[in-house]
Amino acid sequence: MNDIQASVRSRRRPDGPPAGVLALITLAATIASVIAHANDSDRWQGVFVFAASVPLGIYAATMYARLLRLGIRVPGPNISFFGGMTASILGAASGLVSWAQSRADALPVVVDHLMTDIGFALGGVGMVGGLGLLIAGIAVPSIILRLVPRWLAWSGLVLAVIGEVSFLALVWSGFDALLPIARFVGLIWLAIVGFRLPRSRHDVPARWSRRA
């Protein structure tokens, strides 16, 4: 009888897209954008950056729903959703700016530099800042409620701090190195959490409460 009731609850409350897979797709598109940039293909770089923004936004919505399903009523789910949507929107805008910049045959140097700076501000500092909030909104409740192994939750909090501190790249280029760390390692973290985070409150005690 309990199995039947659980099955009915599962059908009534679908989990949505697999969050871990969405993060991996985002990571793959992000890597593809770096490869395109290395090959001097700014047009394809813009395409891949834009492509990466779509599954990231879906990931944020999916994890928001899962955190609420776990009974979390603190600001964490809202922070993660806000951060994820911010990262997705700014990443998409950056990709479109790069694509538009590549379409111009010749731009005045000042205009070209301006568009490059806008792309960096949107897809670099802005996107990573949002990504940090997405990670923080998941990591903090995971630490408090022991939703995932402790090492995973705390490493997420460290990545979130790196992502937020990276805004200092706007004033000193020495902080530029933080951006790829927060972006790539952060996406890997999101993929792992997407696969490991419990799907319901009934899974929490059995999986992590005694191990964390």
Rank of each mutant, 00 (worst) to 15 (best):
N2M: 03
I4L: 12
Q5A: 13
R11N: 02
R11I: 02
R12V: 01
R13T: 11
G16K: 15
P17S: 03
V21M: 15
L24C: 04
I25N: 07
T26N: 03
A28G: 07
T30V: 02
T30Q: 11
I31S: 05
A32R: 13
I35T: 07
N39I: 00
N39R: 14
S41P: 00
V49G: 01
S53A: 15
S53W: 01
V54L: 15
G57E: 02
I58Q: 04
Y59F: 15
A60C: 08
T62P: 00
T62W: 11
T62G: 06
M63L: 14
R66P: 01
R66V: 03
R66H: 08
G71P: 06
V74Y: 06
P77V: 07
P77H: 08
N78S: 14
I79H: 02
S80E: 11
M85V: 03
A87T: 02
A92E: 03
A93F: 11
L96E: 06
W99N: 02
A100Q: 12
A100L: 14
S102K: 09
A104T: 05
A106M: 07
A106E: 11
L114P: 01
T116E: 04
F120K: 13
F120H: 06
L122Y: 04
G123A: 13
G123V: 09
G123C: 07
G124P: 05
V125D: 05
V125K: 09
V125R: 13
G126T: 00
M127Y: 08
V128A: 05
G129L: 14
G130H: 05
L134R: 03
I135P: 12
I135H: 08
G137I: 01
I138D: 04
A139F: 04
P141M: 03
S142H: 10
S142P: 05
R146Q: 15
R146W: 04
P149E: 14
L152V: 05
L152H: 09
A153F: 07
S155R: 13
S155E: 08
G156S: 05
V158K: 13
I162S: 07
G163P: 03
G163S: 07
V165N: 09
V165Y: 03
V165D: 06
S173F: 03
G174L: 11
F175Q: 02
A177V: 15
L179H: 11
P180W: 08
I181R: 10
I181G: 00
A182W: 02
R183P: 01
V185F: 12
V185E: 10
G186I: 03
G186N: 12
W189K: 06
W189I: 01
I192V: 15
V193L: 09
G194S: 07
L197C: 10
R201M: 07
H202Q: 12
D203K: 09
D203G: 04
V204M: 06
P205W: 02
P205A: 10
P205G: 10
A206E: 13
W208V: 11
W208E: 06
R211C: 05
